[in-house]
């Protein structure tokens, strides 16, 4: 049922680590390559890139509070053969510098890796100005862009390595608070959705939960509760939003007949939008999108805000229950 090759044996009682911790860890794994350069816009500590400076001080540049310039400098470095990683909060980069990313990076198709930390309402107490809740939408509309949303610090570290090997620009989303670190250390495959819990028994009530980022763990926990209530969930970690793993998503949708998307992001344009686009074209099934419903986040501890937005485990259980139990049973 649960896939042991992706989940750590102790995934039900995991250690907690900020997803963003994977950023610094990953950068140290690729730092041997002298083409790697790290840029930040006065947020080296909180985006966790600063550890790179301790080891490679000559290849670390704080550009100051100037995200637009950071994007252009990264593009210029990349045109000269370097492999820059640029970091800030998602709401500033790719929020404030979206057009610089569009023209200098995406249209030019250069190897710039963009780290958007503090993704989602998970940023919590600093409020909606500092919660990046539209970044996935902003990035996935850009041709040439790859969009990665790792589920925990372990996966984020692997995503940094994958981005280093990838040709073309990559957006990597990170999050702020300590969260369950529950996935196994395996290479990050860009474009692959990971099936964490498979529906093997034939059940009358089945549903596919497609989650991304921090909500993946919430979905896993929710699936155990739902199983007790007779709803069998296939739980899939959609850690690449662009390109989306349409094959895995379609296969699961065909098997269960119902799809729920879960994200700490606006459902419009985010994972919910992306999944709806692909399934409506090729495998139309009823879809429920859990996430920010065309509203901004609020200030508060991340668990409180998750509850308020209905993207915590209880909110997921409620929404899935309503969605599936009010539908005709699949024969």
């Amino acid at each position: 049922m649960f896939n042991d090759s992706y989940l750590r044996p102790d995934w039900r009682t995991p250690d907690e680590r900020p997803i963003r911790d994977g950023v610094g860890e990953g950068l140290l794994r690729v730092g041997d390559d002298e083409r790697v350069i790290v840029l930040t816009a006065d947020l080296g500590g909180s985006t966790r890139v600063k550890v790179f400076q301790d080891v490679y001080p000559d290849r670390y540049f704080d550009v100051g509070v100037a995200e637009q310039n950071m994007a252009g400098v990264a593009a210029g470095l990349a045109l000269e053969g370097y492999k820059p990683y640029m970091s800030s909060y998602a709401t500033f980069s790719p929020g404030r510098n979206w057009e610089q990313i569009r023209v200098s990076i995406a249209l030019t198709a250069v190897n710039v890796n963009i780290i958007g930390s503090h993704g989602g309402v998970a940023s919590g107490i600093y409020g909606p100005t500092h919660q990046g809740t539209e970044d996935i939408a902003l990035m996935r509309t850009l041709p040439n862009m790859t969009v990665l949303v790792p589920a925990d610090a372990t996966q984020l570290s692997a995503a940094i390595v994958a981005a280093h090997e990838h040709m073309g620009p990559v957006y990597i989303r990170a999050a702020r608070p300590p969260m369950p670190d529950f996935t196994r250390e395996i290479p990050f495959t860009i474009g692959k959705a990971y099936v964490l819990r498979e529906v093997t028994t034939t059940s009358k009530r089945m549903v596919t939960l497609l989650a991304t980022g921090a909500t993946v763990y919430e979905a896993l926990v929710a699936s155990e509760q739902l199983a007790k209530e007779g709803v069998e969930c296939e739980v899939i970690n959609v850690s690449t939003i662009m390109p989306l793993d349409g094959d895995t998503i379609r296969q699961s949708a065909r098997r269960t007949g119902y799809v729920v998307t879960i994200e700490d992001h606006q459902v419009v344009g985010g994972l919910g939008g992306a999944v709806t686009e692909v399934l409506s074209e090729t495998c139309p099934v009823p879809i429920k999108r859990i996430g920010l419903q065309n509203r901004f986040g609020v200030s508060g501890s991340w668990r409180d805000v998750y509850r308020e937005m209905g993207i915590d485990r209880q909110g997921i259980v409620r929404a899935v229950r309503d969605f599936v139990l009010n539908r005709p049973v699949v024969q």
Binding site: F61, Q68, M70, A71, G72, A75, G76, L77, L79, Q100
Partner: peptide
């Protein structure tokens, strides 16, 4: 404005 930053990035490289 965009070319200015790209030029600066190249000069840094």
């Amino acid at each position: 404005g965009q070319g200015v930053s790209v030029a600066v990035g190249m000069a840094l490289a």
